[in-house]
């Protein structure tokens, strides 16, 4: 400290000179037009390259902030790729016809989530209560059935796949014989139609349709074809093995079936 003080005192002339000279330069630049212009010009000529050089050397100091900015930008960009959007365009098919009154409407939806394959397959679609999806509505996929809506949130719905051990769908043959469609949990390409009376003649490759009796699916949608029939002794019924037309595990789209007469039909069902 003493040494430092001595150095300061010994070179007090230099310090006084430096301070006053800087003050003079400041005054000159700020109060004289020609010098001010020269200074501004000099600054613009050398200043940019100098500040570029300095910024180059000091760039690493900014890395953390820069990183944060880039991370936010990444998040913003990720939010904009199509996969992260919720498609709000509504595709509902219906038509006006004086002879036919619309009963079923179809709402297009995308499958956004699927459970891993198992005995209880479910999936999630990106349409929900906001667009009138309700519990118990059916979902059809291209060329076949997909499942039945079981849970509904405002924007999404959970669907019990027809490949779910608890799913029961009313299905029948062309000749009005009908039974219950269920899955035995073994082969995702085959389902079983049970409770078909054993006197009904069934031939392989007969087509199985929905009956529409449960107000879940429209009448007459093809489900699959009969592969084999097996009479169950003593019950008066036979089980039909049905090969599905579609592959529910591979479905990417689903059309939610809305029965406009559901309330009316439900009233009838509650009458004892």
């Amino acid at each position: 400290m003493g040494r430092l003080l001595r150095i300061l005192i010994n070179s007090s002339g230099l310090f006084t000179f430096a301070v006053l000279q800087l003050l003079c330069l400041y005054l000159i630049v700020n109060h004289n037009d020609s010098q001010r212009r020269i200074w501004a010009e000099t600054k613009s000529v050398y200043g940019s390259s100098a500040s570029e050089f300095i910024a180059d050397k000091l760039a690493f100091l900014d890395v953390a902030r820069e990183n944060e900015i880039l991370r936010r930008e990444n998040a913003a960009l990720l939010a904009r790729i199509p996969g992260s959007g919720y498609n709000t365009s509504v595709d509902t098919a219906s038509f006006q016809d004086s002879m036919l009154q619309q009963r079923f409407t179809y709402l297009a939806s995308r499958v956004v989530n699927k459970s891993p394959y198992g005995p209880y397959n479910t999936l999630v679609i990106d349409r929900g209560a906001n667009l009138g999806v309700e519990r118990g509505q059916g979902v059809v996929a291209d060329g076949g059935l997909l499942g039945i809506v079981s849970e509904v949130t405002p924007r999404h719905a959970r669907v019990l796949s027809i490949l779910h051990l608890d799913t029961r769908i009313s299905a029948g043959l062309d000749n009005q014989a009908f039974g219950t469609l269920r899955w035995d949990g073994r082969d995702p390409r085959r389902v079983t139609l049970t409770d078909v009376p054993d006197y009904v003649p069934v031939a392989p490759n007969d087509t199985i349709f929905t009956t529409g009796y449960s107000n879940v699916f429209p009448t007459g949608l093809p489900i699959g074809t009969v592969e084999s029939s097996e009479p169950l002794p003593g019950t008066g019924s036979q089980d039909l093995t049905v090969v599905l037309l579609n592959d529910p595990l591979m479905a990417g789209n689903g059309y939610i079936v809305r029965d406009l007469f559901k309330d009316e039909l439900d009233q009838l069902n509650t009458v004892k």
Partner: peptide, 28 residues
């Protein structure tokens, strides 16, 4: 003392600058 010489020089230059409208030139 050297700092005093410098300070006095600065003050005289500044005084002349005030009259010459060249603030800082004579002082510097």
């Amino acid at each position: 003392p050297r700092p005093l010489v410098i300070l006095l020089g600065f003050l005289l230059g500044l005084s002349i600058d005030f009259f010459s409208e060249t603030l800082g030139l004579h002082a510097g």
